[in-house]
Design a protein around this nucleic acid. Structure first.
Lengths: 157, 157
DNA sequence: TCTTTAGTTCATAATTTACAGAACCAAACT
DNA sequence: AGTTTGGTTCTGTAAATTATGAACTAAAGA
């Protein structure tokens, strides 16, 4: 399998993005190739050879992504190969992870506000205000999603 | 300077959180101590000694955080020491970074959609839908913030 | 039963990172 | 002029991360 320069570039970019999200380089590239490839599914071999990653690294990456629910595979009868693809639900998950992450930050900040007693309360005030914003955001998100779904349905019609 | 167990624990937790955001361990701890300390400002020495970080690591961490605009310092006449604190604008910035990050993802995904031509367009449809959601979110955020500010003002009154 | 295919597992090599320690420097104090 | 203070910069390295290649395995095919 051959990829265009643009595809290779995008694999790199997406790869770096996902590295910053805590994935190992090779794992991030595997996600990348599954994302940008023209084919909807790729085999172990195609991934390993196209990305120039050793079999072991490919094996580890694929199993890791399978375990974390980022990808899935199908097989075809009379063909021992597995055909891997990104789980389609994955997009929303990516977003959810970011939101959960903000929730975690918020929890930490709440506890920070709780333990420290500053001489200058202006700071605490700002922190409190940020915490309240994150709470508000969390509360409003379902609304926002619903709203978008309505808009989206309209657009299609 | 001594910190309570709770403070130390929070520094660790915030530290790990910030490590996942791409900061080096020592840098993340420095942010942490500035966040949870009772004092509104801390000196180089206090940071270095309380966290048990070498002078070089402390120096690097502080300069890094200064350069990236995460912290700032003041001085007092007749005192050569610098007094460091987290930039108060920083809370909103932390949130903005997450949002920018989603924007970056969105840009990559848009280009992905552009280069690949899938046999099966159902996948592309889902991707497109996610992209559109991120666009919607970005567009609505200012609204949401405004809305929150109104709520917030009400609450205070 | 022997071989091929499609992977997995393990030991280890290669990088990368993150920090410590020492030497260094400039300003201020004596 | 010499010393102390408040750092900075440079070099070396311990530790962690990541990937490789070789050996292995289990299923299928000849």
């Amino acid at each position: 399998m051959t990829l265009s320069d643009k595809q290779l570039e995008l694999i790199e970019e997406f790869g770096v993005y996902q590295e910053n999200n805590g994935f190992q380089p090779a794992v991030a590239r595997v996600m990348g190739i599954l994302l940008v490839s023209d084919k909807p599914e790729l085999t172990f071999e195609e991934i390993s050879e196209t990305l120039n990653i050793s079999k072991s690294a490919t094996s580890n990456a694929l199993n890791m992504l399978l375990n974390t629910g980022h990808i899935e595979y199908t097989t075809f009868s009379g063909d021992r190969k597995r055909y891997f693809r990104i789980k389609s639900s994955n997009w929303r998950d990516l977003f959810n992870k970011k939101m959960e992450d903000l929730g975690e930050l918020n929890n930490i900040l709440k506890r920070v506000l709780d333990v420290r007693k500053r001489e200058n309360p202006a700071y605490d005030q700002k922190l409190l205000s940020f915490i309240s914003f994150l709470d508000y955001l969390k509360a409003q998100l379902p609304n926002l999603i619903e709203q978008w779904e309505i808009e989206n349905a309209k657009h299609k019609a």
